[in-house]
Design a protein around this nucleic acid. Sequence first.
DNA 1: TCGACTTGCACATTTGAAGCGA
DNA 2: ATCGCTTCAAATGTGCAAGTCG
Length: 452
Amino acid sequence: MLDYSYPLNPLTNNYGFYPQARDSGMISHGEAELTSLPVHVALEGRELWDKFSNIGTEMLITKTGRRMFPSCKVTVTGLNPKVKYVVMMDMVPFDNNKYKWNRDHWELSGKSEPHLSSRFFIHPDSPALGERWMQYPISFHKLKLTNNTLNSNGLVILHSMHKYQPRLHIVQAPDPCRAQPGAYLRFTFPEAAFIAVTAYQNHEITKLKIDNNPFAKGFRDNGLNRKSDEEADETVSSSVESHVLHSPDMKAPPTATSNPFISAFMNGGAGQQVWTQSPTSHQPQHTLNSNNRDSSRLSSLQYICASLPAQQDIQGIHSPAAHQAYPIQAKLHQPHLQLQPHPHPQPDMDQSLPLPPKLSRVNLPENALRSLEMGSVLDHLNPWPLSNILNRIHARAEASGNAGKAVQGQPQHEQLPLVLERDTRPPFFPAAQDCGTTPYHLRPLLVKPVSE
DNA sequence: TCGACTTGCACATTTGAAGCGA
DNA sequence: ATCGCTTCAAATGTGCAAGTCG
């Protein structure tokens, strides 16, 4: 049986990006273009996520795509309000195992199948100013999961009976004036880990979904295959207790994904790197030096790789043993990425923040946005590199003239040709295949040291 | 035979256009 | 002409259950 508890830092579930020490060499003069605040990401709806994870979160995947419930909703602080960012999300394998449901618990069922290419769900508001991202919680409720490897609708492809965790990407949009690409951050949310299923296995999960998902209200209290409250309560408590790890493998930290794109991130060894120490990293260690930042002749993908953490973000927190020492673990693996209490009190977003405008009324067409990440049906064999995605976002932003503004009264599909047409211009972010001739720098987010 | 998966269904929410009055 | 509000149909999302597939 599995232990679904993720005893993260009980004080906070913020994931923070902190600058290196002032003398680390990472912060060089004139480059602190973000803010004096560390970048913080917090998963909203933790109580609900905890309810699910205590039982063993399952997410339905269908051929046509299914939304997540609970959906991922995050609050971000510490961005530069006047800088544009692209926010994306994908799913990464939680471990190397495949699972099966055995009467009342999950157990291992062999090794996982090779991870399919990561499909980035680009937030429909992207790119948008930092102030926008920080103004409202960023909701990924429109993200859809599928098991259809041939889908070309921008869905996130997953394997059934495999465990995944959401991963958030924050990419600083390119500045045309500086001809310099932006910074890149990513955060994983192990407390939102789930097993992808084509049909719910655990009835308690079904009950939780029905009780909490507004769309499933039709199944509430109608007696349809529902146990009495008394029975249900008993089952809940027993199922929670019964979800005990079956295999010792489960305690092992997740290994690098087999996704070629992500693997490329993780394994690209050459180039500059910001991590000043990484004891467990398999990558060569590099330090960022602004003087040689432009001297690299690496491929674009290699450069991206060089800017990314060696392994899973916040690595090790899946391991129960690591939970207690989580901040230390995180620091060891990624000196810059440290879990700390948020410097500012987290507002109750539901009460203190205004409701965000409805996406469908204020944003670019979702289809157009999704087109950024979708390609041919063979994408799973040849996924688009991140730089390619960024190029398209950049092109679309220019084409729209004002990202995030309403585009109404026009069929969505009519937006696409405009974007694609712009794609004929020289890309701001060189595509991976062009990287040999055009150095591409995707450097880490640069922030000013926190002023004491 | 069995587990994983697909499909159609009923029910509910969300969305957006249309109509109306101030 | 514009804005705000209400209404309503269509689109979309949900889990269930029966059937299919390997």
